[in-house]
Computed example of a mutant assay.
Amino acid sequence: MSTAASSTGSFIHLPIRGLLEIRGKDASKFLQGLITNHMPRIENGGPGFLAAFLNPKGRVMYDVFIHPTNTSNKDGDPTYLIECDARGLPELHKHIARFVLRSKIKMVGVSESFDVYSVLDENPSTISSGDADHDRAAVMERLGSMNASIGMLDNRADNHMGYRVVVPKGQPLTLPESYKQGTLEEYHVRRIINGVPEGIDDFIAGTSLPLEYNLDYMHGVDFRKGCYVGQELTIRTYHKGIIRKRIMPVQYYKPDEPVPEAIQFNKNTSHVIPPQSELFPVKTDESSQPAASSSSPRPVRASGKTGSNVGNIGLALVKLEDAANGRIFNVMDREGATVRVKTFFPAWWPQQGLEEGASPEL
């Protein structure tokens, strides 16, 4: 595994992320019973990982990163930082608190004490992921070179999302002078083009299924771990191998424009599409058909829903069969105008994901 920094890259401050600290003797055991990933992987420190909190019906409540702080409190108990969409932090705190009971843990919001960064090497091919001890040590060595001890290799899209780094508020990262400070827009463009859902605009609390939102592809679910809240449906879906919908990148364009052949962000074009807007298929023999509305006598059934978006690109949950067949959709923007929608399969998806598009069976 090569983790050395490339000669150039970028770093992006993420003030949109919130942090909840959980510490105490039972912290690891407590979280193990609530999340989709396997706490023993990080209970002895090292880099963090992606995970999700589910409800008892197996729906995602919150997508999170869990970072060991790699320090112990005065009693020697483990301490973790749970990173999530800052807008959802109060509700996540309440959700976790429901399960505390007699567990010896303490929780406190610490968003004001830390800064979260995304660091991307210009040559991401030098980054690979793995669980071996020497790989984890290499990640920690790379974090140390950035003046950080908390973070992880962000392998949600294999080697396309760089590093997640958490440092005390105001502490600068140590990076080569050639690394430029990027913008939040650049961060969202990167994750959307790579089909990476994140936060409450993509994961609608209590409705999103983990595998439909690619948590399996993004290394956020451990299918070998023991019981946790929401496990039954997740495991059953995985073993049945039937996943008919997945969230993926889409590009928005006007009805009179040509269908895009490859997804491409255009900062000069913006379509404001509210999250959870419904997608309606365009009939092949009626390419000018407008999106269905509540006033239609026989409304067409929606075939998907939008997630987060920036400019002319976004994420949407769609039927894999429709995406594989090149189906075009209509959606209403915030002004009520009809906008076309074209889906794209992320290049980093495993082969089984591409095959799902041809057949619902894994």
Rank of each mutant, 00 (worst) to 15 (best):
I263F: 07
D77N: 08
D115N: 12
V64C: 01
Y80F: 10
A324Y: 10
N55C: 14
R59C: 04
Y179F: 03
L175V: 04
L175D: 06
P290M: 03
L173M: 07
G151P: 15
N309F: 15
F11Y: 06
K254I: 01
S149F: 08
V300R: 01
M161Q: 14
H13Y: 08
K106A: 03
R244I: 00
S288P: 13
I313W: 08
Y62W: 08
A324D: 11
Y80I: 04
I96T: 02
Q264G: 14
Q171K: 12
H13R: 05
H93W: 08
N214E: 01
T69P: 11
V189A: 05
N159G: 11
P90K: 08
P15K: 01
G9A: 04
L317T: 15
T174V: 08
L320Q: 02
T183N: 03
Q276F: 00
A347Y: 04
T306A: 08
L54V: 10
L50D: 10
G58N: 11
A316P: 13
F65N: 02
G88T: 05
F265L: 09
R340W: 03
E261D: 13
F49A: 12
S295W: 01
G46Y: 13
I200C: 13
K254C: 03
P78G: 03
E185S: 09
V167P: 02
S118F: 10
T174Q: 01
G357Y: 03
D85L: 08
K106I: 06
N325I: 14
I42T: 06
K319M: 07
I66R: 06
Q231L: 14
L211V: 07
L81K: 10
P350C: 01
V339I: 05
K240R: 15
Y252M: 09
F114Y: 15
I16T: 11
D77A: 02
I313R: 09
D256V: 15
E335S: 15
F203P: 06
P124Q: 04
G48T: 05
I200F: 13
L175S: 00
L34W: 05
D285H: 14
K342R: 14
V166W: 02
M1Q: 04
V139N: 05
